[in-house]
Amino acid sequence: MGWIDRLKEGLTKTRKNVHRSMLELVGQGHDPAVLEDVEASLLGADVGVRAVDRLMTRLRDEVGSDPIQTLKDTLVEILNPAQSDSLETVIRSGPKPFVILAVGVNGVGKTTSMAKLASRLKRQGLTPLLVAADTFRAAATEQLEIWGTRIGVDVIKHRQGADPSAVVFDGLAAAKARGVDVVLIDTAGRLHTKVNLMDELKKMKRVLDREMPGAPHEVLLTLDGTIGQNALAQAKQFHEAVGVTGLALTKLDGTSKGGVVVAIAEELAIPVRLIGVGEQEEDLQDFHAREFADALLGVQA
Rank of each mutant, 00 (worst) to 15 (best):
W3T: 03
I4A: 04
D5K: 12
R6L: 00
L11K: 00
T12Y: 12
R15Q: 13
K16I: 07
N17P: 03
N17Q: 15
V18S: 11
V18K: 07
V18C: 10
H19P: 02
M22T: 10
L23V: 15
L23E: 15
V26Y: 11
G27V: 08
H30P: 15
D31H: 12
V34T: 15
E36W: 06
D37Q: 15
D37I: 13
V38R: 07
V38H: 12
E39T: 07
L42T: 02
G44Y: 08
D46A: 01
D46N: 14
V52A: 04
R54Y: 10
M56L: 07
R58G: 00
V63I: 13
S65T: 08
P67H: 09
I68Y: 06
Q69R: 15
T70P: 11
A82V: 06
A82K: 08
Q83R: 14
E88I: 04
T89L: 04
I91D: 05
R92I: 03
G94R: 05
G94D: 03
F98P: 00
L101F: 04
V103W: 03
V103Y: 06
V103P: 01
N106G: 05
G107A: 06
G107V: 09
V108P: 10
G109C: 04
K110N: 14
T112F: 11
A118M: 04
S119L: 05
K122E: 12
T127C: 06
P128L: 11
L129K: 07
L130K: 02
L130P: 07
A132V: 06
A132Q: 01
A133T: 07
A138V: 08
A140W: 00
E142N: 05
E145V: 08
I146Q: 12
W147C: 09
R150L: 00
G152H: 04
V153A: 08
V153S: 00
I156L: 05
R159N: 11
A162E: 10
S165Q: 07
V167R: 01
V168F: 10
G171V: 09
L172I: 14
L172A: 10
A173R: 15
A175M: 13
V183T: 05
I185T: 01
R190Q: 07
K194I: 12
L197Q: 11
D199G: 12
D199C: 11
K203N: 04
M204C: 14
K205N: 10
R206T: 14
R206P: 07
V207L: 13
V207Y: 03
L208A: 13
L208C: 12
E211T: 09
P213K: 12
A215W: 06
P216S: 09
E218K: 03
E218P: 06
L220Q: 00
T222W: 09
D224A: 09
D224H: 06
D224P: 00
N230F: 03
A233D: 14
A233G: 09
F238N: 00
G243C: 04
G243L: 08
V244Q: 10
T245K: 10
G246R: 03
G246E: 02
G246N: 10
L249R: 02
K251D: 03
L252P: 05
S256P: 06
G258M: 01
V261G: 04
V262I: 07
A263T: 00
A265V: 03
A269Q: 14
V272H: 01
V277M: 04
E281H: 11
E281Q: 11
E281F: 09
L284D: 01
R290G: 08
A293I: 12
A295T: 00
L296C: 08
G298L: 02
G298R: 06
V299S: 12
Q300T: 14
